[in-house]
Design a protein around this nucleic acid. Structure first.
Lengths: 316, 316
DNA sequence: GCGCGTGATTCACGCGCGTGAATCGAGAGC
DNA sequence: GCTCTCGATTCACGCGCGTGAATCACGCGC
């Protein structure tokens, strides 16, 4: 239930103007008692001014735009730009916010921007889901959608494992990322690896954690038996694994096979060159825009199979 | 000069309601002639509905929030999160948009979100500057601010060059990034290198371009005389240079010294380990928030010296 | 008792837009 | 000529808020 400054005024027993004045730094005109009453009412009701009203009255909103140089190679950058253009054709504007910001500031953004929808490329935490629900804002969780069993990320994992087996590795391991905020993606990829192992009659894959910090990663890589094929969460993880293997003297691809995901530039620069899996996000930007304009997009509509392609390097 | 639906109505010789109906997909109620008149007026005046009014009337804005998983190691991610929190305490919300999106969609974002200010971490193109100016939105160009002569980025370049000289390289080269959207940053760093060379009585540094694509980079690295110290724009550029050097058989650090900038995780994973320069953005987030609330921040206020620190690797 | 400041509070308008309900106008039917 | 219908257009309200101007209450000096 939306709470307006009218509600606050009523509860504090004053007029709406008084509330507005006090909340906008002109409180010195009022008595101590009035100020306190208003502030108490605000706190009790959890009032936050409606951004559109504010913006309309003042002529400018409370948004601050941060223009970020997203690396031009990143999948995200491409996606953001295409989405921006696709949405613009339908009169919608795309803004971004960091997925690592706190749930509280996320809530603030929601009540300030009051967006038509939220698209999440990384999994939304439970607290943010709650915030979204109570704000009545529709969310499209792409990470979740493309991580269904049988979906693209799952296929990526399967492809990694099957490739490693084809190259003759008889033990398979999985390299997780420590700071795995992208739980769903990781889960789906790992699950794909796991099922491929089962299908081939191998045991459960050994799972190690890669921290992207040399000191911490040496032990993890060292714990892998010779002849292991390591499927990594992404290219960064794989690159870190390669670096650790080099330090502790594991020969790649002989003693250890490594395969990444994403086909980022880093894959082409490692030594030996990384085998990786390129992978287009199976999202039709225009369709996404259409869905945002209408209603109730089922998440599963995005679970179409994306194209995965193996890029053979020298690490397997 | 703001153009409202009233202006459009007047020009088309109809009422404001008619304009509103036609623009919101209820045009079938009107005659062909009226529709065309309205559309012509819209086009001629370049009318775009004011988002706040729309949002107020409809209860939701035309913004779409994209929640991006920004890599947790990136400087930008940290900055975005800290800024988000700092601004939240002052009732402001931080949203991001891609710096690589078109100027047209940037204009759309501005007129839709009507933000209080724009903070740019990458240099703003001239067309975007124009858009900002005509929208009357204040912009704080941090990239520009920290790229003043004598400022942090300039110091980074100097430090790179001086380090290379200290390590005994008698020729200095600079490795630019091809897709250098961050012109100012690059320019300042390169200029720092250039001036350090002059100060030491060396000639102009040789400048090469690194494309982050193996095939293209081999020639560039091959063109460097033995004994060159290569100062690179950033760690990615440096990592690509190292990869190219390995392929064409240049010994690092003997034949070629390489130093990067940013102290990213990639620097710790190259072989040999990259020498790099760590570098904190000299921005006080809270001060930035304060400035946004008041007025007329001089860009130069951010040009305080940041802390640069040399991280010695094995590549120099 | 009356006018007069002065501090405290409220009135009332407008920001730009979307939309249900009302109005208008012209032609059809009697 | 008068009503009735129906397509075309406009009226008028409200969304939530900020703020200049008006109002109010109250104590003071004469």
């Amino acid at each position: 239930m939306r709470v307006s400054s009218e509600d606050v005024a009523q509860r504090a027993g004053v007029s709406r103007s008084t509330v507005s004045y006090i909340l906008n730094g002109h409180g010195d005109r009022f008595s101590q008692a009035t100020r306190e009453a208003v502030e108490r009412a605000v706190a009790e009701l959890g009032y936050r001014p409606h951004s559109a009203g504010r913006a309309l009255a003042r002529g400018q909103s409370d948004l601050v735009l941060l223009v970020l140089p997203i690396s031009p190679n990143s999948q995200f950058s491409q996606m953001a730009d295409r989405l921006t253009e696709a949405l613009a054709e339908h009169g919608l504007s795309l803004l971004m916010c960091s997925s690592t910001a706190s749930a509280r500031s996320f809530a603030a953004v929601l009540t300030t921007a009051r967006p038509r929808a939220v698209i999440a490329l990384s999994q939304l935490s439970e607290s943010k889901r709650t915030v979204l629900r109570s704000a009545g804002v529709r969310a499209i969780d792409i990470a979740h959608a493309i991580s269904q069993p049988g979906g693209p990320n799952w296929s990526v994992g399967r492809m990694q494992a099957e490739h490693l087996m084809r190259r003759g590795y008889r033990r398979i391991a999985y390299g997780r990322l420590t700071e795995a905020r992208d739980d769903v993606l990781l889960g789906a990829r790992e699950q794909g690896v796991r099922e491929a192992c089962q299908a081939a009659g191998m045991g459960e894959p050994q799972v190690i954690t890669v921290a992207l910090r040399a000191d911490a990663d040496l032990d993890a890589i060292g714990s892998l038996p010779l002849g292991t094929g390591l499927a990594c969460y992404n290219d960064d993880t794989a690159a870190a694994a390669l670096a650790a293997a080099r330090v502790i003297g594991r020969a790649v691809p002989e003693d250890l096979g490594v395969v990444g995901v994403d086909d980022t530039p880093v894959a082409a620069q490692t030594s030996p060159r990384l085998t990786t899996i390129g992978f287009d996000l199976p999202v039709s930007y225009d369709r996404l825009a259409q869905l945002l304009l209408h209603h109730d997009p089922a998440d599963t509509e995005f679970a179409d199979m994306g194209e995965c392609r193996l890029i053979q390097g020298e690490s397997t």
